[in-house]
Simulated scan of single mutants.
Amino acid sequence: MKILTFDIEDWWVYEHYKIGKKEDWLPRLDDYLDRILDLLDERNFKATFFILGEVAKSAPTVVRKIDERGHHIGCHSYSHKFLGDATPDEVIVDTKMALDVIADVIGRRVDAYRAPAFSITEGNKWVLSLLAENGIKYDCSIFPATRSYGGFPSYKSCCPSMIEQNGVSIKEFPMAPTTIFGRDIVYSGGGYFRLFPYMKIKSLTRQEDYVMTYFHIKDFDYAQERIYRSFKGEVALLRYIKKYYGLKGCFSKFCRLVSEFDFVSVEQADKMIDWDQQPLLKL
């Protein structure tokens, strides 16, 4: 199965980090979202959109637009604070704030979650039980390889799995790395999707039984203002390349991908799976 997901954070990110003038970037972000929703309607696809609580608060019309098209709504935390150093109380407060504000916008509770920067790791796996206790059925936060600000290389399952942690269960839909030149990478979103030529992405997508995507609107926005600076100790030049390389052709690459493969939401994928046949992991 190939699962289509988006992290909806950029309306807040652009304003919070002063990435250009709002009157310039807002029409661009709205236009990309509209084009994505129209494309998904044409293909009769549903996707899962992980909404940042701050976006639901500051731009509720964006969230309603997605919801009214019948897509699966998930939670992407409240203010995109990485969970690496968070305490249980901080995670509970952040999660409840996000769930409440999103529910106020769409009129129902959400049941899926993705942590900022895939920041559920071996060191804070207890977050999964807190999510389950707060009504989350599906988690999409685990990146079973090493990466900046997150990564869970000791997590050995690269397919949907049932996790038991602290006496509660949650269904995990992890990212699915592929090995290229001895390195585990995820090509189905972010920097590697922008970096790789489309034919390579197409080949990898075709050969994998399970693909989990993660797209951001800013990865399509070639007109965005570039910011050259380091972040959390990362060299400024390296960060600049990771954030902006390949922007120009990324949206057309995405459109080709969605036109050539069939995708489902996390919610639809759940109904396709015989969970008795999936791995049960006790963390």
Rank of each mutant, 00 (worst) to 15 (best):
E260M: 10
L37N: 07
D276R: 13
Y78P: 05
F6K: 02
R28Q: 12
G182R: 06
S265A: 06
T146I: 11
H72N: 15
N166G: 05
I106K: 02
Q278G: 02
H80I: 05
L280F: 14
D184M: 05
G190L: 06
Y78F: 15
L37V: 09
D31Y: 14
C159L: 15
Y149C: 02
C159M: 14
P174K: 03
I241F: 15
D7M: 03
F193A: 09
G249I: 04
A98M: 05
K282T: 15
P279S: 12
V258N: 03
D7V: 05
S188M: 12
T178H: 08
R256H: 13
E23M: 11
D10N: 14
S141K: 04
L52K: 03
F220Y: 11
Y222P: 00
K2E: 05
I241H: 06
I3T: 14
E54H: 08
G74Q: 04
A223D: 14
P153W: 04
I51M: 08
W126A: 02
D94N: 13
A86Y: 07
G189D: 04
I106A: 06
V55Q: 02
L39H: 11
S148W: 14
Y228P: 02
I102M: 09
T61I: 11
L195D: 01
G135H: 05
V168Y: 08
L204R: 05
L40N: 02
L195H: 05
G107F: 07
T48L: 01
I19A: 02
D221R: 00
L29I: 10
G107T: 10
I241A: 12
H71M: 05
I227H: 09
D10A: 04
K218Q: 13
T48Y: 04
K271F: 11
D262T: 12
I8G: 00
D276M: 10
E68Q: 14
I73W: 01
R183I: 13
R256M: 12
A176D: 06
V186A: 02
G190Q: 08
E164C: 10
W275H: 10
R108T: 11
T213I: 06
Y245S: 11
F143Y: 13
D41A: 12
K18D: 13
Y149S: 04
Q277E: 13
Y149T: 03
R28S: 06
D276L: 08
